[in-house]
Write a protein that binds this DNA or RNA. Structure first.
Lengths: 162, 162
DNA sequence: ACCTTAACTTAGCATTGGCTAAACTCTTGT
DNA sequence: ACAAGAGTTTAGCCAATGCTAAGTTAAGGT
């Protein structure tokens, strides 16, 4: 359910108050666009983190249990249950009550994508000279806000470094 | 009101189930730490964006009105009002009903800090070869998830480039 | 086989950050 | 001077993401 503010300035109309220069209006439009992107990112971000983590657990331990997810996410068990319901609605995971969590095809695709991005960002930070510890933490936060173009630039940089 | 999950693994106790290797436990701890950081970042993030924007408006137009904030944030007027209340509680802004928005000392400090970070990240992306358009958008999202260490590395990179 | 315990679920609550609609205030133009 | 319109606020709604407490299920050790 995406809320869309009715403040977006129509592309065709001037929508310019007597006080507002055209430049200012343009600036407002561009900026609101960036903020909207950030808000939208936040919506998918958490889902991606959960899905990626579940994939990791399956690979590591051959199955993902809610409890492990809770511990790794640093979150209560009940929170995981609730989140899993939302992920099921989105068709990313499946789970029978009291059973292990499995990923759908879409889930695996999302996890793969996330892993790729994550790896690139983390390696990039390392190549930039950031410490292992900080690269790990920062990449987690940055990962979701990096466009494909920036990601490509980061990958290129890492390659050049070697 | 900060929720703290009761899952955090105490630093001193082993807290290791029979199945869980020490390595796995360590990994879980490190990872949950990163996710917690990201969640914590999100709490301050929006406040910072609003405060920074208000500072920009004051500098540009000599005063910041709620309506301008709404347009630039891409958000409804009512949302701004609600947010301003929270910012007032946090001692970042002041406002009399129906009057312009002003920043407190703390507010200005936060805005200044945000601007610095923002500038560094955006210039860094440009130096990395990312297009103007994308640098503008991505820096908005990345800005809040960059530690001081990474920020320093970015600044250094920009300098080296010139 | 069963009993304990760890894992899981349900229920109910809080906070944040959005929204619309309707009411109110301020400013500006005639 | 005041009416209209722009800007602001209030009220009430919703969804997401967290929590605790209490109940339920499943699994492992004796």
């Amino acid at each position: 359910m995406l809320y869309v503010a009715n403040h977006s300035i129509p592309a065709n109309e001037p929508y310019r108050s007597s006080k507002m220069s055209q430049n200012a209006s343009k600036k407002a439009k561009l900026q609101s666009q960036a903020f909207k992107r950030t808000r939208a990112d936040h919506q998918s971000e958490l889902a991606e983190d959960y899905v990626e983590l579940i994939a990791d657990l399956i690979d590591e331990k051959s199955e993902a249990r809610g409890n492990d997810v809770a511990i790794r996410m640093g979150v209560a068990n009940a929170t995981v249950v609730k989140m899993l319901k939302r992920l099921m609605e989105r068709g990313l995971v499946t789970q029978e009550p009291y059973r292990e969590i499995m990923l759908t095809g879409d889930g695996w695709a999302m996890a793969e994508n996330g892993r790729k991005r994550h790896t690139i960002v983390e390696n990039f930070l390392l190549a930039l000279g950031v410490s292992r510890e900080v690269a790990r933490i920062d990449s987690e936060g940055i990962e979701h806000h990096v466009s494909n173009e920036t990601l490509k630039a980061m990958a290129k940089f890492v390659t050049r470094q070697n």
